[in-house]
């Protein structure tokens, strides 16, 4: 049980997808202007990431490996991810029209969020079991959501701060992202024996 907890903690904090592995930077910069939309995007991505990590593991184990066609891995995974994203879009549209409007174009763009494909491929690379890959996906997504929410909060305050004209807008956003990344590197101390 404790190893699962450690895996979750390690993927969410120590190997954070956004700030340590630098995956999924597009929504990280794009949807972090407002806290509400960042939370919504975080949860939508969590749903997609967990579901696609699990389904891509199943496909890898029961379709690609027995048939010996591992070279089609990326193609197949992208297909599965696209289907899951479409499904998520329908669910969000049905359950929360407001969120659907807020997320706008970024919802279908989860398909091209490299964190989603990255996690699915890392699962294969690291020979995870089904439960492990499910937790790996969920942990990464939690880390993603955490970082999105933190960054959105920071940017909401930055909007009110007196930033020098040269740095106003995106540049100060990138600097803050860099500082956040440095701070997250500190978590690697957790992994040290």
């Amino acid at each position: 049980m404790s190893e699962y907890f450690l895996l979750l903690l390690a993927t969410a904090l120590v190997n954070n997808v956004v700030l340590v592995k630098f995956l999924g930077l597009c929504p990280f910069m794009g949807v972090s202007n407002k806290l509400d939309s960042a939370i919504g995007m975080g949860f939508a991505t969590t749903f997609v990431l967990t579901l696609s990590a699990a389904s891509s593991w199943l496909i890898e184990r029961f379709v690609l490996e027995p048939l010996g066609i591992e070279y089609l891995r990326i193609l197949t995974f992208i297909m599965v991810i696209a289907a899951v994203v479409q499904f998520t879009e329908m669910v969000v549209r049905k359950t929360s029209p407001v969120l659907y409007q807020v997320l706008g174009i970024f919802l279908p763009l989860i398909t091209t969020n490299c964190a989603v494909l990255g996690v699915a491929l890392l699962n294969v690379q690291q020979d995870h079991t089904f439960v492990e890959s499910l937790l790996y996906g969920f942990g990464s997504a939690m880390g993603f959501t955490l970082v999105m929410v933190m960054f959105a909060g920071l940017r909401e305050r930055l909007a009110l701060a007196d930033v020098p004209a040269t740095f106003a807008g995106a540049p100060i956003g990138f600097i803050v992202a860099g500082l956040l990344s440095l701070a997250f590197l500190g978590f690697s101390g957790l992994a040290a024996p």
Binding site: I59, V63, L64, L67, G68, I69, L72, L75, T76, M79, V80, A83
Partner: peptide
Amino acid sequence: TEALLSLTVLGVTL
């Protein structure tokens, strides 16, 4: 054949 078939089946199912 397996590659073609599996991708087709997957696509149709999804």
